[in-house]
Amino acid sequence: MLDDRARMEAAKKEKVEQILAEFQLQEEDLKKVMRRMQKEMDRGLRLETHEEASVKMLPTYVRSTPEGSEVGDFLSLDLGGTNFRVMLVKVGEGEEGQWSVKTKHQMYSIPEDAMTGTAEMLFDYISECISDFLDKHQMKHKKLPLGFTFSFPVRHEDIDKGILLNWTKGFKASGAEGNNVVGLLRDAIKRRGDFEMDVVAMVNDTVATMISCYYEDHQCEVGMIVGTGCNACYMEEMQNVELVEGDEGRMCVNTEWGAFGDSGELDEFLLEYDRLVDESSANPGQQLYEKLIGGKYMGELVRLVLLRLVDENLLFHGEASEQLRTRGAFETRFVSQVESDTGDRKQIYNILSTLGLRPSTTDCDIVRRACESVSTRAAHMCSAGLAGVINRMRESRSEDVMRITVGVDGSVYKLHPSFKERFHASVRRLTPSCEITFIESEEGSGRGAALVSAVACKKACMLGQ
């Protein structure tokens, strides 16, 4: 009897593995994704193909990295998701002549009506938060230079001027797309009239992360975010950046690689679950690469896999709870928690219980395998993109072996128990001629924006502006 049951459990697990095998990517698959990513990057950089390229390769006008001589107080704003952060950054000489960066910050959550109302409502709310922060720190009387981390696709015309191309991540505030974001912020500050600010720089969160990590390690020339969304930036040779005049030196390019796949480059790798996630998203047909990796989508992918296993009578005796059938019910943090389970399955059992399920031991094991399959594919897909960037940098610099540091931020990278190990191992397999160091950014977005502002202020002083 026991043997029969054991055989049935083994057969069930084997069927589960057959279904989950769809998520496995072979090294040849990853090399294919990497080569296609490089081709799209090239198209994004070139003037004649930029418009139709899915990977936009947006110039950021960040050319210099901090040298350690900029000092002063800077205000930093960070808008990239449902939370908005205001930070005071003091850049100065530390002990023994070292450079020191001290920060104080406060988080504000953005109400739904500000995210989806008008641009005026959104930026009025942001300036209200700045006003509140300055009151708390008794700094209303000071006109501070301000660095703005704005983590949406922007076409820069200068370091302090950028046109919002399109909202992502659930934002829909009308009247912002096609307009200068810094102008919208300046107008809102003017409307309030109770404080003055000098907006000197606007950067993407990947750029802010790279600059913040450069402060720790001067070989950091790539910034990457794996959180709600997924994106990367890197220092490109100016001669390859056709959208900006000049051939000397390097400029940081914001790849906006989340949109890779929007022209069909990933079609052969998309599964039924991916198509369902895409169809029910706020932007169907867009940001397809990001939807395979980002935390906004990972939990939902797992939920759809679990429903398939229920329908195949391989999980929960073929019956799903009402909660499990509800879109968004299986949160991405559950994926991390399930994979963090120590082996007694308590954590998995508790999560499934909150979803109205009474799982068996085998159910718990199957749910864990589903989570591992989805998150491992995410790590491997992400590795193909980064390997594409790094191999490109090595080739354009004609280096036999390139040493490089990548600064990384984002909740999936930082909080998932195995993502970074799987990701690092896969990147290294795909970049055999590179020695890569990964560092995690601390308060990256805010500190990085302030350091970019410090560079901009120093330049302005040198130019006598």
Rank of each mutant, 00 (worst) to 15 (best):
Q219P: 14
E177H: 07
L309G: 05
G81L: 01
V241R: 02
E221T: 12
L25R: 00
Y289P: 07
V222M: 14
I404Q: 09
A114T: 12
D274A: 00
K90T: 15
L430M: 09
L307R: 11
V181M: 06
F334K: 05
F316T: 12
L243A: 09
M251V: 12
S174V: 07
N180F: 02
T326C: 07
Y413S: 00
E268K: 13
F260G: 01
R43Q: 09
F438G: 04
V338D: 07
S127G: 14
G446V: 09
M115E: 07
V412H: 00
D311N: 08
E157L: 13
A454E: 02
E443L: 14
I225K: 05
I19Q: 07
E128C: 14
R345L: 13
E51R: 10
K31R: 11
F330C: 13
C233S: 11
I211G: 10
E51P: 10
R394C: 07
V182R: 03
G343S: 10
Y61G: 03
Y289D: 05
N391F: 10
R43T: 13
M402C: 11
I348F: 05
S433T: 11
A370M: 09
R191I: 05
N231V: 02
E312S: 14
E272I: 09
T437F: 12
G388T: 07
R7V: 13
E265W: 04
V367N: 00
S131Q: 02
D262C: 11
V305D: 03
A208P: 13
G318R: 13
V91I: 15
A11F: 11
T342L: 09
E319F: 15
G117P: 03
E265S: 11
C364E: 10
R46A: 13
A201P: 08
K169V: 02
R422V: 10
V401K: 15
V62F: 06
P359A: 15
G388M: 04
L324S: 11
D113T: 10
E242M: 04
Y214P: 11
K13L: 10
K12V: 10
M393C: 11
R325D: 11
R368S: 09
Q287N: 06
L134D: 03
E421A: 12
K459S: 15
V226Q: 00
C364R: 08
L271H: 11
L47K: 14
D344R: 10
E237R: 06
R428F: 13
L47W: 11
G81D: 07
S54A: 07
V310W: 12
A176K: 00
W167K: 02
L146N: 03
D135V: 09
L276S: 10
G162M: 03
C213G: 15
F419S: 04
N166L: 02
F438C: 07
K32L: 10
E93I: 07
L185E: 02
R275G: 08
S109C: 11
L355V: 09
N313H: 03
I404F: 11
K458A: 09
R327T: 15
R308D: 14
K39H: 11
I439Y: 09
F423H: 06
S212W: 09
T228L: 00
K414T: 15
T60C: 10
G68A: 10
I211E: 15
M393P: 04
G68H: 15
M107W: 06
H141C: 04
V33A: 07
T405K: 14
G356Q: 07
F171Y: 04
S433H: 13
L45T: 02
I19R: 12
T168G: 02
G356D: 04
V71A: 15
D344H: 08
L288E: 14
V305L: 10
G464V: 07
T103Y: 07
K12F: 11
M107E: 06
L164I: 03
L324I: 10
M238H: 10
S69P: 12
N204F: 00
A450L: 02
H105M: 05
E157H: 13
G193T: 11
E27C: 03
A384F: 01
E372D: 05
R63G: 14
L75P: 07
E339R: 04
K143H: 02
A320E: 15
F23T: 08
F133Y: 05
G299W: 01
D262I: 06
G410L: 08
R303I: 00
E120F: 04
V305I: 15
L315G: 12
G97Q: 14
D160F: 01
V338F: 15
G72E: 03
G295W: 00
I189Y: 03
A6N: 03
K13Y: 11
G175N: 02
R36K: 14
K90Y: 05
Y108M: 02
S174K: 05
K296E: 15
T362W: 13
R36W: 09
S281I: 01
E67H: 04
E67W: 15
R394W: 04
D247A: 06
I366N: 07
Q239L: 12
R422T: 15
R429D: 10
A460Y: 15
D341A: 08
A425Y: 05
R63V: 11
S280P: 10
G385N: 01
F438A: 03
G229K: 06
E157D: 05
E96W: 06
G343H: 11
E237Q: 12
R192V: 04
A387L: 02
F438T: 04
G261Y: 02
M238V: 12
V86Q: 01
Q286M: 14
V16G: 10
M34S: 10
Q24S: 12
E435Y: 09
P359F: 08
R85F: 02
I130C: 01
Y413V: 09
G299D: 03
Q106E: 11
S373N: 15
K172S: 10
E22D: 10
D160C: 01
E339P: 05
L357R: 09
V91E: 03
Y297P: 13
I351G: 14
R369A: 07
R5W: 13
T332S: 14
D205Y: 00
Q138W: 10
C461K: 13
V401L: 10
R5E: 15
R327A: 13
S453N: 06
A384M: 06
T149C: 15
S433N: 12
G385Q: 02
H416L: 12
W257Y: 13
E96K: 05
Y297W: 07
D409I: 02
S151Q: 02
A11W: 14
F438R: 04
G388L: 06
G117Q: 06
K136I: 10
